[in-house]
Design a protein around this nucleic acid. Structure first.
Lengths: 195, 195
DNA sequence: TATAATAACTAATGGAATTAGTTTTGACAA
DNA sequence: TTGTCAAAACTAATTCCATTAGTTATTATA
């Protein structure tokens, strides 16, 4: 009851992560990964069940790191500061790990409840963060969808060089979040009498 | 001086578009496309120079349709209505042509100036639309980046089923755009004295 | 020291993109 | 009407990748 100890899954995923972050998720093939690890590609099947499963594992790893970053930076904050910290954590992750970020954007297989659940945890953190704005029910859902939209859109466009002009991107990001916050507050006010 | 008339590029692209929109851009391979057209895959090389070039052509076709839609719906409008129409046109396109929408999201090759230029035209339309808000210089650039971010993020998340809860997505979209407009106006006001 | 679980291996298959070279077709000139 | 020839489509072959089957090698423990 004791196997030969060689490569293990975390090491394999670390190598795959490095490739994905440096050269893009599409550059991670079983052939290229095996070559990097100095083994033959069929040997990878001892640790991961094919390329789709490898991508799935990268998605889990990405979600784990993203959640850790969010939880780390958001702790003990509230209100506008909390939302801004949440947004910054999200953007930092996509910058540090563009390959893993791409991995968590792939739609999970329809029957992959485990991955769906993990992705839902990120949404839950957003819901908690937005809760401080006094938004409830449908209004909170709409707001969280908006936050997810501009965060993902910005991260995605930036990551593929979609913003051509050399004007400070951090400044754009800060203004975008502030504009959203200002907009939420304005609309909330204009609806105060109607509820 | 007269060739045999068989398949032509527009017909080929129409078939590829249908496959991409129905089954996803990744389902469009030279093999699957050739099969749909009842020819052998090497024959496709008479019309398009390989898979990367096919994807590039799909990107051009997508940009053409997107621009036509924007120009059609935005004409003769101004102010908030114009921006809302712009946003709706963008979203409509991504819904009608999810495959082509995916094609225009792929980063162009660094030396592909022609494709870059065509993508920049969409940004120009956004700049024109946002100009009505009295934003100039850097402020306009930041605002356009924000609009692109939430539009792309929403379209992208919606397209891959990222919004789980069955709550009206059109309503979310309308609120998101309105929140942005309200935020821009608020922030513009708060800066009036400082310029 | 023998064993058994398992990592890694070789060999082989199938599918995709691509290239080279051949055949077929059909609009037009003679 | 017919011959020409450029282009379209074809077959054959190569390369690269993922994957499966079956073999070999290693090492912790009994």
């Amino acid at each position: 009851m004791s196997p030969r100890i060689g490569l293990d899954l975390p090491t394999l995923l670390d190598a795959a992560t490095e490739m994905a972050d440096r050269q893009g998720l599409e550059a991670v093939t079983l052939a290229s990964l095996a070559s990097k690890l100095n083994i033959r590609s069929p040997s990878l099947y001892n640790h991961v069940n094919g390329l789709p499963e490898l991508r799935r594992q990268l998605a889990f790893k990405g979600l784990e790191l993203l959640l850790a970053k969010i939880d780390g930076e958001v702790a003990n904050l509230s209100g506008d500061e909390k939302l801004m910290a949440f947004c910054r954590a999200y953007l930092s992750f996509s910058r540090e790990h563009p390959g893993l970020y791409a991995a968590i954007q792939r739609a999970p297989e329809p029957d992959d409840e485990e991955l769906k659940r993990e992705m839902a945890v990120v949404v839950e953190r957003a819901v908690e963060t937005i809760g401080a704005y006094g938004l409830q029910g449908d209004a909170a859902i709409h707001a969280v969808r908006a936050v997810r939209s501009f965060l993902h859109g910005f991260a995605s466009l930036e990551s593929q060089g979609g913003f051509g002009i050399p004007l400070d991107l951090d400044e754009t990001f800060r203004l975008m979040v502030e504009t959203f916050i200002a907009g939420v507050k304005t609309i909330r006010k204009s609806n105060e009498g109607t509820i």
